[in-house]
Deep mutational scan, measured.
Amino acid sequence: GAPPLPPYSAGGREVTMKKGDILTLLNSTNKDWWKVEVNDRQGFVPAAYVKKLDSGTGKELVLALYDYQEK
């Protein structure tokens, strides 16, 4: 199953993602919540729920390892 959710501390809205989604990583300075862009929406997802990909394009991409439903 998915890892436990860290307390929400990102101070911005969250976004929903599905397992297998490829998201653009915008900011990973917060260790628990990373800012991503998905379907032209920006928001935060739990860092433990995604994995960085080596895209080779200069853009940082992450793979959704679990479904996440915004609150």
Rank of each mutant, 00 (worst) to 15 (best):
A2M: 12
E37C: 08
F44N: 03
D54A: 12
P3W: 05
D40T: 08
L61W: 10
E60Y: 08
N27S: 12
E14A: 14
G1T: 15
D40Q: 12
G43F: 07
S28M: 09
P6T: 01
G56E: 14
S55V: 12
D32F: 14
A2C: 07
V62K: 00
K59E: 12
P6M: 01
A2I: 12
K59R: 13
D67H: 04
D54K: 10
A47W: 01
M17K: 00
K59C: 09
A64D: 00
W33Q: 00
G20L: 03
K35M: 15
G1K: 12
F44L: 05
W34V: 04
M17Y: 02
A2V: 13
R41G: 12
T16F: 10
L25V: 06
E60V: 14
R13Q: 13
D54Y: 09
K59G: 09
D40W: 07
L65N: 03
P4R: 08
L65G: 02
K18E: 06
V45Q: 00
P4T: 11
K19H: 05
Y68A: 01
K59F: 10
L63N: 02
T57C: 11
G43Y: 07
D40Y: 09
G43E: 03
T16Y: 10
G1M: 09
Q42S: 13
P7I: 07
A10T: 13
V36Q: 00
D21G: 03
D54M: 10
N30Y: 05
D54P: 15
E37A: 10
D67F: 03
Q42V: 14
G12S: 07
K51M: 12
D21T: 05
Q69T: 15
K71P: 11
K59A: 13
V38W: 07
G11C: 14
I22C: 04
L5H: 08
L61I: 09
G56L: 13
K18L: 07
G58Y: 11
A10R: 07
F44I: 05
T16P: 12
Q69H: 14
E14K: 12
G20E: 01
N30G: 10
S28Q: 10
V15G: 03
E70S: 14
I22F: 05
K31G: 09
T24C: 08
P3T: 05
P46I: 03
R13S: 11
G12A: 07
A48K: 11
P7N: 10
V50I: 06
G56C: 11
G20T: 01
K35W: 15
D67Q: 03
A2S: 10
S9W: 11
L63C: 06
T16L: 05
P4K: 08
G56W: 09
W33K: 01
P46K: 02
L65S: 02
P3F: 05
G1I: 06
N39S: 11
N27T: 07
D21R: 02
L26T: 04
G12C: 10
K51V: 13
T29L: 08
P7D: 11
P46M: 02
T24M: 10
E60M: 10
L61F: 11
T24S: 09
G11S: 13
D40E: 13
L26H: 04
D54V: 13
G20N: 05
S28R: 07
K19A: 14
Y8Q: 11
K52T: 08
V62E: 00
P3M: 06
W33F: 04
G43A: 05
